[in-house]
Nucleic acid binder design. Structure first.
Lengths: 142, 142
DNA sequence: CCTCCAAGTGATAATGGAATTCATTAATTT
DNA sequence: AAATTAATGAATTCCATTATCACTTGGAGG
């Protein structure tokens, strides 16, 4: 099943309509897979392609896609949010260069070996790390 | 050496003055150690104490304290930044409850055992995690 | 194919956190 | 004490995001 059909199904299955703006945004995301885009990026690229979509709609659609698990929202150290397609079972994390802000992705298959191997594998000198575990605390588990 | 003296030294050593606003902000931070405060929180508490400090100064001071390693700036999933005192060698991370937003802190002594032990230790059901390593990429290492 | 209407859209205004400006004040140097 | 420099704070600006609300549209049911 094509990627776009798959996403389409998720939408329809959740009782949302497949509208033109949503399809256009989806296309931009697929065309730029692997990049980290802001809402504004997407809005601009659509305008450049001669298929403008209102900024409010872009934000609403990105939020919806996050809820449906189509997208991940990423917060780095700056003010804006970045979005990327959620590749199933390809959970990955980020190396962030403090000097140039380059972002390098890495998988989490070998959590215990990370600290040691990252430097070698990516030539990245780790000086700090931030880990957030998300889930449900003892008060909220059903 | 008292905590406040220690911080004072860091300031003076870096050629900054220990001014009244800076001291007041420091006091608020020490009084609320362990909490995660926003710039606005600090600004409000100072006003309530009858020792108001301009919001701009609060922001500038927090930024300065971060540079000097006195504070850490934390970005959770919402829009604002939170600040907490940096306790030397007590590097820790955060468990964030998706239901109530409670934040539980945990140390990183046993990185490899985390995933397994967290659930037991904190009664926290982990459903996702975000790891960011900060440092210098191959292009930027001197 | 047509009608209807909830769902969706988009221009614009509003919001809110953070950064900046700039005139004023405090501290330090000569 | 004059001059230079650092720091402050009220007000303004910036910028990402959200809310508002009149208008449009997709698609289910006739």
């Amino acid at each position: 099943m094509s990627r776009i059909k798959e996403i389409e199904n998720k939408l329809v299955h959740a009782k949302y309509k497949l509208t033109t703006p949503r399809r256009l945004i989806m296309e931009i995301l697929l065309e730029n897979e692997g990049e980290h885009l802001t809402a504004e990026d997407i809005h601009n690229r659509l305008r450049e392609k001669g298929q403008p979509v209102g900024l409010a709609t872009v934000y609403r659609t990105l939020e919806l896609f996050c809820e449906l698990g189509i997208l991940s929202r990423l917060n780095f150290e700056d003010a804006s949010s970045y979005y990327e397609l959620e590749e199933h079972d390809q959970h990955h994390h980020h190396l962030i260069c403090l000097a140039c802000n380059r972002i390098i992705e890495f998988s989490d298959e070998l959590l215990e070996d990370f600290m040691v191997s990252i430097e070698r594998k990516y030539g990245f000198e780790v000086t700090d790390h931030k880990i957030k575990y998300l889930g449900y605390c003892s008060h909220c588990r059903n």
